[in-house]
């Protein structure tokens, strides 16, 4: 396939997506459903890792698309739609998590202690990283997912999560230390 063919294909896909977005903005649910089918995997994967819980991630993914229906008019096309949707998803998922988590935990800033009691299982070779990420304490998990997996900067994470940049870095360090231990490197 030539470079020119690649460019033409990319432009066609871009145009098709732009058409879908514009149609959905105009109230076309079928166009919106096509966008849903295209992006549900990305949205759910991010929600799943941020939440550490499948059913909660499913609820949050629904919330993302329900809010997206209204937020579409805010998309100006400055960045790729997938990049913009990724950021929208992260923000909604974090906000959703805050609403859903136990009020006691929030009120008294109690971290879940599961992670602390988790013992290393298996050797580094057969570790399912998602399983370990799921067991990280909530704040450490959110920072690890956003920084290490999704590539957000600590400044961006701090803004999304209302924590200080230093706290984001500290939580990242904490997550790495726990993973290192569980993966048998300590």
């Amino acid at each position: 396939m030539t470079l020119a063919t690649n460019v033409i294909e990319a432009e066609a896909k871009f145009d098709q997506e732009t058409r879908l977005i514009n149609a959905a903005r105009g109230g076309d649910k079928q166009a919106f459903q096509t966008l849903y089918q295209k992006y549900i995997g990305m949205v759910y994967s991010l929600c799943f890792r941020l939440m550490g819980d499948g059913p909660l991630a499913e609820d949050a993914s629904q919330e993302v698309f329900i809010q997206l229906w209204k937020k579409l008019e805010n998309y100006r096309g400055d960045s790729k739609f997938s990049t913009w949707l990724h950021s929208v998803t992260a923000n909604i998922a974090i906000s959703y998590l805050r609403k859903q988590r136990g009020w006691l935990q929030r009120m008294f800033h109690i971290e879940d202690t599961d992670a602390i009691n988790t013992e290393a299982e298996g050797s580094a070779g057969d570790v399912d990283l998602d399983e370990y990420v799921k067991r990280l304490p909530e704040r450490a998990r959110i920072v690890f997912v956003l920084h290490a997996i999704e590539g957000y900067r600590h400044e961006e994470i701090a803004s999304m999560t209302n924590m200080a940049v230093g706290s984001s870095k500290a939580q990242y360090h904490r997550a790495k230390q726990l993973l290192k231990e569980w993966m048998g490197y300590e």
Binding site: Q37, I40, G41, S45, E58, Q62, L129
Partner: peptide
């Protein structure tokens, strides 16, 4: 890591 995981139930 799988960046295209699918939910177990129909969300649409």
């Amino acid at each position: 890591l799988d960046k295209n995981m699918q939910p177990q139930r129909d969300l649409w």
